[in-house]
Amino acid sequence: MMDRTKYLYLAGTVVLAAAPAVLNTYWVDVLNNVGMYAILGLSLNLIVGHAGLFNLGHAAFYAIGAYTAAILNSHFHIPVLWLLPLSALTAGLFALMIARPIIHLRGDYLCIVTIGVGEIVRIALINNVFGITGGANGIFGIDRPQIFGWVIRRPQEFYYLIWLFLMVTVFLFQRLENSRFGRALNYLREDETAAEGSGIHTAHYKLMAFVIGAAWAGMVGNIFAAKMTIISPESFSFWESVLMFTLVILGGSGSIPGVLLGALLIIGLPELFRGFANARMAIFGVAMVAMMIFRTGGILPARPRTYRLPQPAAAVEAKP
């Protein structure tokens, strides 16, 4: 079983590596967006899917990472990719700060507060907070990323940067999921009292889900800033948070393949049906309602973790 998924990933990698050779620039750019939203979705999946904390303000962390890169690059000309860890750090610290007082809130209350946080960040950016965010116009003239003197400029080049980042993310998050850390998030999602009563520091893990999720979104923000060379508050609206949330729930919360599929459907599919752009919201809505009724785990729901059981006796008995 493990082997089959490995081959699937391998085949996927080959197809992806070849994609820019056969697609035109427009479609490569669509795939770039799919890739970025997939990473954003995976980062949100830690919070929403694994820890079960409803966060509808994820765009705030994305924005903070993007603005960190934009401000430091345009003022001090630090190469954008060098700023990746810093974007992660600022977004993570911001999450630490705002999540601490609100994580004890339950379900719907937390959801409402995170919407508020997302809006406050966006409005602060519009109001040129600290005089460094450029107000509604945003920040111009962000440098292109460079790797060993090679400037990444064309969508085809960004494609490899973004999808490599996505693959690294999948690799790391898969390990994270299948660990003491990942389990702890699931325990607190299933029953917080029982988790705490079994010795899990639930408040700490909720906070860490937010911090790691935010840090990752911050890094996507960095790449977004470098890709656009200009960013403004409107790129980080409530709608962005809704997209990320939707793709996680629709694809399969707590499931990496689910989130990847979700990103493809939510970001990629509408491009196929440009003509019906107006119907997009309605289709989303219907799909979400159908999902909530017929397939609550999403299209590709999370699968139980597998463990290698050391005792052959137990393993033989388990097989019917």
Binding site: R175, L176, R180, F181, N186, I200, P304
Partner: peptide, 26 residues
């Protein structure tokens, strides 16, 4: 934890006697 396996339910008890964090896992 009704939706998790029997083994994982017991692993929750092991948690407090373990140390590895998120970085060690990644």
């Amino acid at each position: 934890f009704q939706n998790l396996s029997v083994l994982e339910n017991v692993l929750s008890g092991c948690h407090c006697r373990m140390k590895s964090g998120s970085l060690a896992a990644m």
